[in-house]
Computed example of a mutant assay.
Amino acid sequence: MAELVEKHDALLLDLDGTVWSGGEAIPHAVEAIEASGLRAMYVTNNASRSAADVAERLRDIGLAASEEDVLTSAMAALGLAKGRLEAGDPVLVVGADSFKQLVRDAGYAVVESADDHPKVVLHGHNLETGWRELSEAALAIQRGAVYLASNLDTTLPMERGLMVGNGSMVAAVTSATGVTPEAAGKPGPAMFHQAAELAGAGSPLAVGDRLDTDIAGGVAAGMPTLHVLTGVSGPQALLEAPENQRPTYIGADLRSLGADPGELRPRPQGGFTARVDGDAVVLDGGDAGAGLLEAVRTAVSAAWDSGARVERVRAASEVAEAALEHWW
């Protein structure tokens, strides 16, 4: 049996919800990455930690990772800023100390106030960001500073659930200024292209758990994508996904890297059949032992092929009903 990893020469892996959750390795993730034998690049929208810190955390959960294997959205945002700056130019960074140090190391002057006339405002996630920091950013932008964001994720998965993400903080500044920043992170393609270049990859696979960032970014970059059901986006999100957020493959977790790519593709399988009836997919049939994954791939393929707005799945057999118990 062919394995998915045999079709690719590198993995571009999301972190939160894909490799770890709350700092703990997601079951089977470490073993699957190591067993793949592929160069792994960890591509994260989280701009609150340095690449070195991320690599250390990856080593803590058992992965052989170095700083060179990590690309953060802060690094990508700095790449966007470089075309607008000259050495020594003032930059207002709304973000973590590691983001500020990254900017200093690149040869720019990090300032704290709009009164220092920053040429660029860089906005990344930081747990300590409050009214003062957002207001200084707003003032600087109103005075002509270019506004760039590391990412626009509205939520951030943490131990207790989905917390306020960088995109929600950016929204406050946009509301005050009327300026929407250019974003360096996912779902834009820049990080994926940069990560593939760093890995020296010609046929990378983008892997993630969130359709509107990880998968949309891979699609935008023209890369095959694997969506895993270990994080934010579940079966219902897949069912309703617009074309630019539809993954090439769907798997339960990172063990899917060792699965037959034909089985991972959205298509009728497990003895299930599906048809669209109004705003619903009617799922019927099903072999004994067929479960949620086979139901998901069958249902979403019918929904996507129909071109209709589909919002729910309805079971028409006992096997389908059992498979859909964990749909959400």
Rank of each mutant, 00 (worst) to 15 (best):
L205E: 04
I33W: 06
L80P: 06
D212W: 03
E243N: 03
L205Y: 02
L239N: 12
T18E: 02
E3N: 10
D105L: 15
P247T: 12
A96V: 02
G286W: 09
E34T: 15
D60W: 00
E182F: 03
A302H: 00
A74Q: 05
A114Y: 11
P181D: 08
V282I: 15
E182D: 11
A216Q: 10
A138Y: 05
G88M: 08
L238V: 12
D277N: 15
M158R: 12
V93R: 04
F99W: 01
S48R: 04
D89N: 11
E136P: 01
A288M: 03
A10K: 07
T44S: 13
G289A: 09
R49C: 01
S135D: 06
R275H: 13
G83A: 08
A290I: 04
A252M: 03
T72Q: 08
S168R: 08
S50Q: 04
V110E: 09
A221D: 01
D277C: 14
A77F: 03
E318Q: 12
H117T: 04
A199H: 05
A201V: 06
G62L: 03
T44Q: 06
G271T: 01
F272R: 10
M169W: 11
K119T: 01
P157T: 07
E68Q: 14
V281K: 07
A76S: 06
D97G: 12
P187I: 03
P157Q: 05
D260C: 13
S66A: 11
R314H: 09
L63P: 06
E294V: 02
E112T: 15
G130I: 01
E24T: 02
V19L: 11
F99R: 01
G286L: 07
A52R: 04
P27S: 12
M1V: 12
S36R: 03
A106L: 13
V300F: 09
A47H: 06
Y42E: 07
T273Y: 03
E24Y: 04
A183M: 09
V219W: 02
A25Q: 10
G231H: 09
V232A: 15
T174M: 06
Q236L: 15
E112C: 06
D279H: 10
G291C: 14
V232H: 10
L292S: 10
V43E: 08
A201Y: 03
E240F: 04
S36D: 02
P242D: 14
H117E: 12
A303Y: 10
R314D: 04
G17H: 13
T230I: 10
T298S: 14
M75E: 15
T154Y: 14
L324T: 12
P118I: 01
D14S: 11
S21M: 14
L63D: 10
R297H: 06
I61N: 08
V173N: 02
R309V: 15
L239F: 13
A64N: 12
S50H: 02
Q194I: 10
D16P: 05
P266L: 07
G200D: 14
Y147R: 05
L205V: 04
Q101M: 15
Y249W: 14
T273L: 11
P181K: 08
L293I: 15
L254V: 09
R143D: 04
D260F: 10
G130L: 12
A206D: 09
M41V: 14
A237P: 02
R160F: 09
S150P: 00
E182Q: 13
P204C: 09
E159P: 00
A35T: 02
M158S: 12
S113E: 13
S50D: 03
A320S: 11
A2S: 12
S66N: 01
L156H: 10
D253P: 00
